[in-house]
């Protein structure tokens, strides 16, 4: 059983990983690259279904066990069911026809619930960032002062009021982005890439096994 539970998955990961590397350098293997990308997409779709199931299971358990907030979980499950019904009804075409994106019910839910709710959720952050900046953004050290000055220059330079205050502000802001910011980001990018490559190699050679999950006994 250890062979099937540990050795075989590690072997699959190693073979898939080595093939993934080699296909980049061997042009005749482009067909394998295409096919493996299609397979990756299909398996990924099942992973998304797993994620959605996980969410619904959590809420369903809360309803079944009458836990605190179960009524809200019922709202989640209800909203899921209603939206899915409209999606599958597909303006009468059903689940095996081409999806009609302008589908009456689904389109309505998307335009009038999903879009405003999604946009508003993220727009809350504007208030939180202002409040957090007021409370905690202090020039306590030279480094913090550099951060503060850079932030103010960029905030003013990227909007038209900056040019109205001084024509040098947009230029300074652009130089800050093009030069010191770019240098720091490049350093981070190179460092992160080296780390990602090292982790990927560890996964392929079976040194990194956390993706296997726990062994259930």
């Amino acid at each position: 059983m250890t062979f099937l539970q540990r050795t075989l998955p590690l072997a699959i990961a190693m073979v898939a990983g080595l093939l993934g590397i080699l296909t980049f350098y061997i042009p005749v293997w482009e067909e394998f690259e295409t096919r493996s990308a299609i397979w990756f997409r299909i398996v990924f779709a099942f992973a998304m279904i797993l994620g959605i199931h996980s969410l619904l299971h959590m809420h369903w358990t809360r309803i079944r066990r009458n836990q605190a907030g179960w009524a809200y979980s019922a709202v989640t499950v209800g909203a899921f069911a209603v939206t899915l019904l409209f999606a599958i009804y597909n303006s009468g075409a059903g689940p095996f026809a081409v999806q009609n994106l302008e589908s009456g019910g689904l389109g309505w839910i998307y335009d009038h619930i999903q879009v405003p709710a999604g946009a508003t959720m993220f727009s809350l952050l504007a208030f939180f960032i202002a409040s957090a900046a007021f409370r905690t953004f202090r020039a306590r050290s030279p480094e913090a002062a550099i951060l503060l000055v850079a932030a103010i220059c960029v905030m003013l330079g990227r909007v038209p009021i900056g040019a109205a205050i001084s024509p040098y502000l947009p230029e300074l802001s652009q130089w800050l982005m093009d030069t010191p910011n770019m240098a720091a980001r490049r350093g981070i990018l190179i460092g992160v890439s080296l780390g990602a490559i090292a982790t990927a190699l560890r996964i392929i050679f079976g040194i990194e096994r956390s993706w296997l999950g726990e062994d259930r006994r």
Partner: peptide, 16 residues
Amino acid sequence: QSVGHVIIIGFILFGN
């Protein structure tokens, strides 16, 4: 956008 930036900068400077 410009007004919002000025307000937030004002809060930051005021806080400092």
